[in-house]
Simulated scan of single mutants.
Amino acid sequence: MFRKLIKTILAIGILGLISLAAPHSVHAAGAGFTITPIASKQQNDSSVSYFDLKLKPNQTAQVKVKITNTTTKTLNLIASPNTGYTTDSGSVAYDLQKLGSKSTAPYQLQTLMGGQQKIAVPAKSQRVVTFPIKMPATSFKGVLDGAIYFLNPQTSGSTVTNKKGFSIKNRFAMALGVTIHEDTKTTVLPKLTLGTISAGTDQNDTFSPAVKVKINNTHATLTKKLKIKSQVSQNGKTLFKTNTSNLTMAANSNFNYAITTNHIALKAGTYHLHLVARSGSQKWTFSRNFVITKAQAKTANRHARVKKSYFIWYILAILLVLLLLLTAFWFGRRSSKQKK
């Protein structure tokens, strides 16, 4: 089952710490190329390690990046301006072009920056690539957050197959952060809301059954150093609980927070969730009853690693031993009476 789930795991190295104040090349071992940002006139904060741009409604601008091919062959790279989203492990990522329900940002970076570019860089040479920006006519508060995601699809790195037959394929990418403001004077604070609660699996706990809680950041700002405490109870008894910290949520995003059962099978029934989230001085408290159906529990358990319970076998073994003892005792008494 798990071989089908993770037959190929794509491990991508993302490097985003690129200084604009003192530009330097950044590379990933085996990627075959480096990228160097070229400082923009619209840079709002030159001390940060990404493009931090202040623009106006309807304004046009551009950012430039120098790409260096360190190999002896022409590289055909793919550069994608992607909006940031939140992974289910509670971190910000930039590797997806189409986010669907993962993002509620009013504008997507791929739309504002002209979409994906295919870039050919000759062997042992450099090329400067321009990414145009066209701001929407309607103003907004907060940030549009994302990155220019550079991928070399030709570089597959090493493929390792372990004893269980899982193959891990390495590919290399680098992400150069892009944050766009229009109003830098107004502070926009995060706002978290509680979404759906469902049964699923927790991949971070080696595919344990889990209660999946969708948490939404509805405002256009990052939620940093997020701490979450949760507990799932039934009839007043706490069954599962978590205490996690140092999570980050992208602006206008959501993720499925997993409350692991520690490999105990989920059962159908009515449960109660109590969850407290903190970020800085902000605090959100959520309490809600929810139902897990038999079908949902069965599906979650089927796709998870569940501890096998031997309790019934222990009971049967004890009963069998008692039955054998009683049988032996009965035959013993019967034999004794016959001899008398």
Score class of each variant (00 low, 15 high):
Ile9Lys: 15
Leu10Pro: 00
Leu10Ile: 09
Ala22Asn: 14
Val26Leu: 09
Val26Gly: 13
Lys41Arg: 12
Asn58Glu: 14
Gln59Pro: 11
Ala61Trp: 05
Lys64Arg: 15
Lys66Met: 13
Thr71Asp: 08
Lys73Leu: 09
Lys73Cys: 00
Asn82Gly: 09
Gly84Cys: 12
Ser101Phe: 07
Ala105Val: 05
Gln110Asp: 15
Ile119Arg: 06
Pro122Asp: 12
Ser125Leu: 10
Arg127His: 08
Lys134Gln: 15
Lys134Met: 06
Gly142Tyr: 05
Asn152Glu: 11
Ser158Phe: 10
Ser167Trp: 00
Ala175Tyr: 01
Leu176Phe: 11
Val178Glu: 01
Glu182Pro: 00
Thr187Gly: 00
Thr206His: 13
Asn216His: 12
Asn235Ser: 13
Thr242Lys: 09
Thr242Ile: 01
Thr248Lys: 02
Met249Gln: 01
Met249Leu: 11
Asn252Cys: 07
Thr260Pro: 00
Asn262Val: 09
Leu266Asn: 05
Ala268Glu: 11
Gly269Gln: 05
His272Met: 05
Leu275Asn: 01
Ser279Asn: 07
Gly280Cys: 06
Gln282Asp: 12
Thr285Lys: 12
Thr285Arg: 09
Ala300Met: 07
His303Thr: 13
Lys308Tyr: 11
Val321Leu: 15
Thr327Lys: 07
Trp330Pro: 00
Phe331Arg: 10
Lys337Pro: 04
